[in-house]
Design a protein around this nucleic acid. Structure first.
Lengths: 348, 348
DNA sequence: TTTAGCACTCATCTCTTACGAGTGCCAACA
DNA sequence: TGTTGGCACTCGTAAGAGATGAGTGCTAAA
């Protein structure tokens, strides 16, 4: 049985109509399509063939057909005509990012929310820190008698700070001593290296002072870990409630989305560009009724994070894929400006 | 018609049974209650009286009765026997806070999430900054050639930092100059005072350098505003999906909860202790199908924030009210340790 | 290969009926 | 006077019976 041109046109029409209406598509509806100028009976023959080939499913005998996962896959991989973004749409996305001097953390959190609002899907955004990123500088700023602000600056430009309340008075002498000590021990090491064992070993070197300075050492460890682990943001999970696909599964999927442990690995390991997981293609059972679109974004040449879209299998791929692609690109560009230094000159 | 003891017992039984089962309560069920040793017919007479008095509602003629808002109100204000927390329950809540050296921001975010998990309700946590809080110290730490970390330390102990990328090389001389300038102009002023106009006026004083340093001045403004505005955290909105009360209104209420503009004023202005808004008592129309429990938490003597619980009107008040109370108290204690300085000695 | 015709399937809607939980009211009783 | 048993009544809910109609598969003719 050949997957000929007319079958392709019919499959496309079924996918697109079903995405639009959510109703199984029948032969009569299809025969009225501009691209398909044959009678309902002929369409039925073709539909029977497409069913045999595994591209269609039938909710029940007397209903029309809906696309199977294979059907969606064939549509996305070959049949779909991607709708390139209009200038207005590009402007719309650009406007979402129209903020002066963005804080990188907030930028991503806001981006996740904005993308959800824009697409009507739930979103996940995640940053990843390359293994070669090192500690570049550690600083300690006395803020108050016994309070200091600890800063860790990583070689990829990320800065994290933490307020530490200590049990003793911190004067500039103590601060200077600890600053030098911490920079000597931590700078140049990759974030990946800075494990609990590493920190214990460093702490031991403080000898009698190790107890006193321990909160600061632990603080540095926590900050390094925070930078290395990256961030995980959610947006618009409640959007899923608008689809009746989720009427009885909304809680389950909303819970899943907030679990970084589960979703992180799935969205984190993908090639560049937009990757699509349709329904049962997902490895997580809770996601099998959903589709997941994932796009990486880069700072310069370096993979820097992923942003993902979660929605019903019946989502408008031809619109969402290019939108997500443009969005991720834009996000990367903006982050590149923020972290303009250190991209590519030390990855090796 | 007297609201006598038996009527009170019957109302209590109706409220408690309805909270437990979600079904309208009938006279037969009530007559079997240990505290109510009369026949169903007598109970019916009493129920008719309670209905007359406005304490009960009737979904339809042939159903049992459910409490009206007045009924819940009477129950909560006088009839309810608050279940004091067991030691185990106290330990359970204590365990939620069992984290060494908490970051105040994270503490509250985690608390909101933990409370939602613990109570099965959606939660909102909000910090408020008293009007008398001033800027205590501003610091600028060069992190990289053209990158600095800006720190604002407020008199209530809150520290916020922000990374600023500048268009020029920052050496220690420049940093020292700006640090002195900023501290001279901002320190001692209340956060409330630091408006856009104030910042413009300060900027003007930099004369020719005002353009150069503007990102830093704006950064200080943003940080001050961030401290003054406080934080707004949500937790467990998806918990509401477990109640069929929300089966068709979940989206609406979840959206509302995320709007600080709308919910902030409602939960922010309440006396100390736990305040309860039952259904229609709420000023926001979207909340009229829900109950809202709000508790303030304090640092020392000073009002510092509020934590609220949102759930179906049919919620277990006798359990949740003391739990929320204890939780807020615990939260205040923990924050007091974090911000142990400056409480009460400068409010005036 | 395409198409018209036709019998068949099956979800959905509507109408009817039966059921039962719960009520209100009344008369009798302590 | 308060309490109780009895009884007719209400009304939501569940179950069953048609009727409807969208859509199919198959066959035979063009």
């Amino acid at each position: 049985m050949r997957f000929d041109d007319r079958k392709k046109r019919i499959l496309s029409a079924i996918v697109e109509t079903y995405i639009r209406t959510g109703e199984p598509v029948g032969s009569k509806t299809l025969s009225e399509f501009p691209g398909i100028c044959v009678s309902p009976a002929t369409v039925r023959n073709e539909m029977a063939a497409l069913f045999e080939m595994g591209f269609l499913e039938q909710p029940h005998t007397s209903a029309g057909r809906i696309p199977s996962h294979l059907g969606y896959r064939a549509y996305i991989d070959g049949l779909m005509r991607v709708k390139p973004l209009t200038e207005d749409e590009k402007d719309g996305i650009d406007a979402l990012f129209n903020i002066g001097d963005p804080d990188p953390d907030k930028l991503l959190a806001d981006a996740a929310e904005a993308l959800a609002e824009y697409t009507g899907c739930a979103t996940v955004a995640m940053t990843t820190t390359p293994h070669y990123v090192t500690v570049e500088h550690i600083d300690i700023v006395p803020a108050d008698e016994s309070t200091v602000v600890l800063l860790v600056i990583a070689s990829n430009g990320v800065v994290k700070s933490k307020v530490c309340r200590l049990g003793f008075r911190v004067n500039t002498g103590i601060a200077d001593f600890f600053r030098k000590f911490a920079n000597d021990r931590f700078c140049g090491h990759t974030l990946k290296d800075i494990s609990a064992e590493f920190v214990t070993a460093v702490s031991v070197q403080l000898g009698d002072y190790s107890n006193v300075f321990n909160p600061l050492i632990v603080g540095i460890y926590e900050l390094c870990k925070e930078v290395y682990d990256g961030q995980y943001y959610l947006g618009g999970r409640e959007k899923l409630l608008t689809y009746n696909e989720y009427s009885d599964r909304a809680l389950e999927i909303m819970k899943l989305i907030s679990k970084r442990d589960e979703l992180g690995p799935v969205i984190g390991n993908n090639p560049s560009g937009v990757t699509v997981f349709i329904g049962k293609e997902n490895s997580l059972s809770q996601l099998m009724g959903s589709s997941l679109l994932v796009a990486r974004f880069n700072i310069g040449e370096n993979d820097c994070g992923t942003i993902g879209l979660i929605g019903p299998v019946r989502m408008d791929y031809s619109r969402l894929i290019p939108h997500l692609e443009y969005f991720a690109e834009k996000l990367g560009t903006l982050l590149s400006i923020t972290y303009q230094r250190k991209t590519g000159d030390e990855n090796g």
